[in-house]
Design a protein around this nucleic acid. Structure first.
Lengths: 232, 232
DNA sequence: CAATCCTATATCCTATACGATTTTATAGGG
DNA sequence: CCCTATAAAATCGTATAGGATATAGGATTG
């Protein structure tokens, strides 16, 4: 079996736990997923099985299975006898809906997370808030990439500490779509967001659930307003 | 091509819109989905590709693709070299998380829906609230099946009228899992729920968003408490 | 008798070749 | 310019074969 381009490390298992080798279909899934998240496959563009066969040097079978899985997650769409294509770019309407959803979930999660925090968890959030890494690097592109990753971790950790995996999964699922959208409009959105992260962090430190909820709401509303110009 | 057991009507397209014929993979997906929703495939049980090949008289290819899609939706799980299995029954923890999510989304949706209602939409909700069908049928099983369908429509329509497709999809997605769970514990849960539907409906009729929000919250909390004994 | 090892079968996973059907592109005619 | 017809390309599904692994049951050994 040749496996030239997937480049997956099958050896990196966490200590103590057995890890089954990945299936080829799983590797292909991750490879396509990564290409979608990095815009190497643009939103709305076609995805042909034959091209992937050539690119990955694997047969149709695992690719079809992986594409089916991506379809189930809403990241690709299939039309009979036409083929697969990447999910289209987010619409303005969808954008509004996404922020409405976030405003219902994330402030509540922030409030709930507040009461579960200890020093260790606070440190995790502080790390993820990106306060330290603020001035690191002058390459605009790299800078943004760091921000995006830390922002995702920051929000995800809050959902985790709120002890609701379902809400966490829901937000993460939407985040994949959101990430693709945001990648195309990353001006210097980052600076203000980092300030707001600090404000949320301050409420956490103070152990004030109401303040955390409010700060999160403000953060998300501002985030929305910062990205809104992308639709004009 | 033989297509003995899928029994899909390819002719029923809505007027005015062209509809491509379904792919076989799509038909297989729907067939498996239906079996999961009707408990013909029990939660946690194994799903072998070969069995489906024999049952549906189709080859491996579309079945694997359909199973991949179900995996992406979280309805089946795959373990390498072991195979697919139906997603396990919902846990108590997950149950709590689900209701926490519903309490964040559905009351808000009810409030938002209230202001968009007109006579026509109100009639739709009245129909879906199941007020009419309350005394229809004495067969306990059929009776419950009717309740489940109408309950799903009632909540879905509210989400639709709230004009947020994303929230609607999120709730529907969760409802899939919830439905499977509830199928196993359907005592006489229905009567009270129908009363609560009427209470929500009254708030809609009065055009009172706050009352709708509150009634929905009460309904969901009661629904949770009615189902809670299932875990003991 | 119990524990371990081994073997056999079933199942999964992938590759490959082929045919059927449909889309898409191209060219020609009105 | 638009429509139609033919040809090329792509998709979808089938069938089949072989390698790899899991699982169960039996054989061996202490």
């Amino acid at each position: 079996m040749q496996n030239s381009d997937l480049t997956v490390d099958r050896e990196a298992h966490p200590p103590g736990r057995i890890q089954r080798a990945n299936s080829l279909a799983g590797d292909v899934y991750e490879a396509i997923f990564a290409q979608l998240m990095s815009l190497r496959i643009a939103p709305g563009s076609r995805i042909t099985v034959d091209n992937l066969v050539k690119e990955f040097n694997v047969s149709h079978t695992p690719i079809r299975e992986a594409l089916g899985r991506l379809e189930g997650e809403g990241l690709v769409m299939k039309t009979h006898l036409i083929g697969y294509r990447a999910a289209p770019q987010i619409t303005r309407r969808r954008f509004d809906e996404l922020y409405e959803l976030r405003l219902l979930l994330e402030p509540a999660a922030a409030a709930k997370a507040t009461v579960t925090l200890d020093d260790e968890r606070l440190a995790v959030l502080q790390e993820a808030a990106g306060v330290m890494a603020r001035r690191v690097g002058k390459d605009e592109r790299l800078r943004y990439s760091n921000f995006a990753r830390q922002d995702a971790i920051f929000h995800d950790k809050i959902a985790e500490f709120a002890r609701n995996e379902l809400i966490r999964e829901t937000l993460n699922h939407q985040h994949t779509h959101f990430h693709i959208f945001r990648l195309m409009y990353h001006s210097r959105v980052t600076e203000e967001a980092l300030d707001e992260h600090e404000a949320i962090l301050a409420a956490f430190s103070a152990g004030d659930p109401d303040a955390a909820e409010k700060a999160m709401r403000v953060h998300i509303e501002n985030s929305r307003d910062r990205l809104l110009p992308a639709f004009e």
